[in-house]
Amino acid sequence: MPSETPQAEVGPTGCPHRSGPHSAKGSLEKGSPEDKEAKEPLWIRPDAPSRCTWQLGRPASESPHHHTAPAKSPKILPDILKKIGDTPMVRINKIGKKFGLKCELLAKCEFFNAGGSVKDRISLRMIEDAERDGTLKPGDTIIEPTSGNTGIGLALAAAVRGYRCIIVMPEKMSSEKVDVLRALGAEIVRTPTNARFDSPESHVGVAWRLKNEIPNSHILDQYRNASNPLAHYDTTADEILQQCDGKLDMLVASVGTGGTITGIARKLKEKCPGCRIIGVDPEGSILAEPEELNQTEQTTYEVEGIGYDFIPTVLDRTVVDKWFKSNDEEAFTFARMLIAQEGLLCGGSAGSTVAVAVKAAQELQEGQRCVVILPDSVRNYMTKFLSDRWMLQKGFLKEEDLTEKKPWWWHLRVQELGLSAPLTVLPTITCGHTIEILREKGFDQAPVVDEAGVILGMVTLGNMLSSLLAGKVQPSDQVGKVIYKQFKQIRLTDTLGRLSHILEMDHFALVV
Results as ranks from 00 to 15, higher is better:
Pro2Asp: 14
Pro6Trp: 05
Ala8Glu: 08
Ala8Pro: 01
Glu9Gly: 11
Gly14Ala: 01
Cys15Asp: 13
Cys15Gly: 09
Arg18Tyr: 12
Gly20Glu: 13
His22Ser: 06
Ser23Cys: 04
Ala24Asp: 11
Lys25Thr: 07
Lys25Tyr: 06
Lys30Phe: 01
Gly31Ala: 09
Glu34Pro: 01
Glu34Leu: 01
Lys36Ala: 08
Lys36Arg: 13
Glu37Ile: 08
Glu37Tyr: 12
Ala38Arg: 09
Ala38Trp: 04
Lys39Ile: 04
Lys39Gly: 01
Pro41Phe: 01
Leu42Pro: 08
Arg45Asp: 08
Pro46Phe: 04
Asp47Gly: 06
Thr53Asn: 14
Trp54Glu: 07
Gln55Ser: 10
Ala60Asp: 01
Ser61Leu: 07
Ser61Tyr: 10
Glu62Cys: 13
Glu62Met: 13
Pro64Leu: 09
His65Gly: 01
His66Asp: 15
His66Ser: 09
Thr68Asp: 15
Ala69Tyr: 14
Ala71Val: 12
Lys75Cys: 15
Ile80Leu: 10
Gly85Phe: 07
Gly85Asp: 15
Asp86Gly: 14
Arg91Trp: 03
Arg91Tyr: 12
Asn93Phe: 01
Lys97Trp: 01
Lys97Ile: 12
Lys97Cys: 01
Lys97Tyr: 06
Lys102Val: 01
Leu106Phe: 12
Leu106Trp: 11
Glu110Leu: 04
Phe112Arg: 01
Phe112Ser: 01
Asn113Val: 07
Ala114Cys: 04
Lys119Val: 01
Lys119Phe: 03
Arg121Thr: 14
Ser123Ala: 10
Arg125His: 09
Met126Gly: 04
Ile127Cys: 04
Ala130Leu: 05
Ala130Ser: 09
Glu131Ile: 05
Arg132Cys: 11
Lys137Ile: 08
Asp140Ser: 10
Asp140His: 01
Thr141Trp: 15
Thr141Ser: 11
Thr141Glu: 01
Thr141Gly: 06
Pro145Trp: 06
Thr146Ala: 05
Thr146Lys: 10
Ser147Gln: 01
Asn149Phe: 01
Gly151Cys: 05
Ala155Trp: 01
Ala157Phe: 01
Ala157Lys: 01
Ala159Pro: 04
Ala159Phe: 04
Val160Ser: 13
Arg161Ser: 15
Gly162Ser: 08
Tyr163Ala: 01
Tyr163Thr: 01
Cys165Phe: 01
Ile166Asn: 07
Met169Val: 06
Met169Pro: 15
Pro170Cys: 01
Lys172Cys: 05
Ser175Ile: 14
Ser175Gly: 06
Lys177Ala: 04
Val178Phe: 11
Asp179Val: 06
Asp179Gly: 09
Leu181His: 06
Ala183Tyr: 05
Gly185Arg: 13
Gly185Asp: 10
Ala186Ser: 01
Ala186Asn: 05
Glu187Leu: 07
Ile188Tyr: 06
Val189Ile: 08
Thr191Pro: 07
Thr191Ile: 01
Pro192His: 13
Thr193Phe: 07
Ala195Leu: 04
Arg196Gly: 09
Ser199Tyr: 06
Gly205Phe: 14
Arg209Glu: 10
Arg209Phe: 06
Lys211Ile: 09
Glu213Leu: 07
Glu213Phe: 09
Ser217Val: 01
Ser217Ile: 01
Leu220Cys: 05
Arg224His: 11
Arg224Ser: 01
Asn225Arg: 03
Asn225Asp: 01
Ala231Ile: 09
Tyr233Lys: 01
Tyr233Trp: 14
Asp234Lys: 11
Thr235Gln: 15
Thr236Ile: 12
Thr236Tyr: 01
Ala237Ser: 07
Glu239Gly: 10
Leu241Arg: 10
Cys244Met: 07
Lys247Leu: 09
Leu248Trp: 01
Leu248Cys: 11
Leu248Ser: 01
Leu251Val: 09
Leu251Phe: 06
Ala253Ile: 01
Ala253Leu: 15
Ser254Trp: 04
Val255Arg: 03
Val255Cys: 15
Thr257Phe: 01
Gly259Thr: 01
Ile261Cys: 11
Arg266Thr: 10
Arg266Ile: 15
Arg266Ala: 13
Lys267His: 07
Leu268Val: 07
Glu270Ala: 14
Glu270Tyr: 09
Lys271Cys: 15
Lys271Phe: 14
Lys271Arg: 11
Cys272Ser: 13
Pro273Glu: 08
Cys275Ser: 14
